[in-house]
Amino acid sequence: MKDDNPIRPTVASRSLSLALFLALLGIWELTVRYLNVPAFIIPKPSSVLLSLYTGISSGLYFWHTLITLTEVILGFLIGAGAGFFIGVGIAINRYFSYFVYPYAIVLQSLPKVALAPLIVLWFGLGITSKVIAAALICFFAVMVNTVAGLRSVDQERIDLIRALDGSEFQVFWMLRLPAALPFIMAGLEIALTFALIGSVVAEFLGAESGLGMLIQSMNFSMDVAGSFSVLVVLAIVGLSLNQLIGLVRRKLIYWERRQEASAVEPLESAESMDALQMPSRAIP
């Protein structure tokens, strides 16, 4: 691999982007200070940093982050789990597919955020409504990708196992499922981001705790620096979740890495490239 590969940041490129970021903060700070921008419109980075420090040191942000994280992870597990199993059902059983698919389509065409007020109304201000909102919003991404992945397997490989007198279960377990993993993982990555959106939106609409509720209440009290500092926390939460799922991805789809590890001879690996594509394409 060449050194100037933009995907692999070097120490130099990392420190450059850090320097640019700090410069940006400096310009922001100076602009707000000298143009006398009111703090309830745009706060100074220094006051955001201060709010962040108070929030963290008082343990307040920790508690609300824990609540939001719990909602996101529970919602993700429930939504993604349901998406996976229903996706499997749709892919392997035609009748199940006929039965479930129309409902899934209707659910998908609906902006789930629009359901959030109802969910909060029905399930209250506690954690349950947030978990359900998160689950609902990440369900479809996983389901579609599971179906697409399980159906992506070529007939020839299926025939290979059948010709060895393999069962349909073996075709599923030895071929369809591993072949679908890259697709499913792509769905899970999207779903995790969606779950965070789902729970924060539900918290906006009514919650006792959580980062979304914190932003909302700070907005009401014009504590914009506080809002910004919670945004920083949310960004860190989102990034960490992405890192985590990336880690799971590399563990689970261990053979993908080998693509980069240079080949013995150049090859025309059209098939293996197929499997690596990350479509979240709709079901044919």
Partner: peptide
């Protein structure tokens, strides 16, 4: 090794 490390003939 994994298949994508092999040439077509080797595969």
């Amino acid at each position: 090794r994994y298949p994508n490390e092999l040439s077509g003939g080797m595969q």
